[in-house]
């Protein structure tokens, strides 16, 4: 038996909207620790790892771990029917083939429920080791989205290089070249405008811009995004889901010829 009541129900919609264009079907794993989702995109270039902690829920009961396979497009359709301030409650039986979403308006004057069919999905679960990253940059999520969008209009790949001078995003294409450098800024008046760079060693990696741009669909989740890079390993692009969990994207670097 699963029962989970999330006061900030809109968080679920934001998470699903952020990943549904990369992954069509996925298992949402539920256990006493909360909700998690791990899935590779259809071309197996990137990996999505989401976790929502049980204590993020006003009420959370999960009698035994379960895997709920679902179409993320269909899940997005259901969650789109929730009001932006609605409280969302999920209910599922241990051996059922459906999950029910109940949406309650904050004034309790409207209640709706939607039953979503579950599906069996074979998925490969990968172990993600803890990594000591050479460079970690925490920047406004909107700024990251803008850089991805701007550079995508010029080229297909981006070199992200972190040095003591800052983090430089470089691309080139038929139009020409483009460089954007982000420097540490911890003195901005608003905390949401601050950029923090933690550099242990210089590092430069090349990535396909279309994936980095896709990750920016998580922008509504958080004020900041954190990019963590180390040599010859995937970049981790992390959005905190307030103090409730995280949504992480891993992207394999491109290997230069």
């Amino acid at each position: 038996m699963l029962e989970a009541r999330l006061v900030q129900g809109s968080m679920l919609r934001k998470v699903v909207d952020a990943v549904k264009d990369l992954v069509s079907d996925a298992n949402i794993d539920v256990s006493s620790s909360g909700f998690s989702l791990q899935a590779m995109d259809t071309s197996h270039v990137s990996l999505i790892a989401m976790h929502l902690r049980a204590d993020a829920f006003e009420h959370f009961r999960c009698d035994r771990p379960m895997s709920m396979g679902m179409s993320l497009a269909n899940l997005a359709k259901v969650l789109k029917c929730a009001g932006s301030d609605d409280i969302v409650t999920l209910k599922a039986n241990d051996d059922g083939d459906t999950v029910t979403f109940m949406f309650e308006s904050p004034k309790e004057d409207r209640v709706s429920d939607f039953e979503l069919k579950l599906m069996d999905i074979d998925s490969e679960h990968l172990g993600i080791p803890d990594t000591d990253y050479c460079a970690t940059v925490t920047m406004p999520a909107g700024e990251y989205a803008r850089i991805c969008k701007d550079l995508s209009s010029i080229g297909d790949t981006v070199v992200i290089s972190a040095t003591k001078d800052g983090v430089k995003f470089t691309t080139s294409g038929d139009v020409g070249t483009a460089n954007v450098t982000v420097r540490q800024n911890t003195t901005a008046d608003k905390k949401e405008d601050q950029t923090i760079i933690d550099l242990k060693e210089p590092v430069a990696l090349t990535f396909a811009l279309r994936y980095l741009t896709s990750f920016a669909k998580a922008t509504p989740l958080a004020t900041h995004v954190t990019l963590s890079m180390t040599r010859e390993l995937p970049v981790m692009v992390e959005y905190a889901i307030q103090d409730m969990g995280h949504l992480r994207f891993y992207l394999a670097p491109k290997i230069e010829d």
């Binding site: 590779m40 071309s43 197996h44 270039v45 990137s46 990996l47 490969e124 679960h125 990968l126 172990g127 993600i128 080791p129 090349t206 396909a208 390993l233 995937p234 891993y250 992207l251 394999a252 670097p253 491109k254 290997i255 230069e256 010829d257």
Partner: peptide
């Protein structure tokens, strides 16, 4: 895609 490796080669199957 050209020059692009699969993410699964970086993480062990668990």
């Amino acid at each position: 895609p050209e020059g692009q490796t699969s993410i699964s080669q970086y993480f062990a199957k668990s």
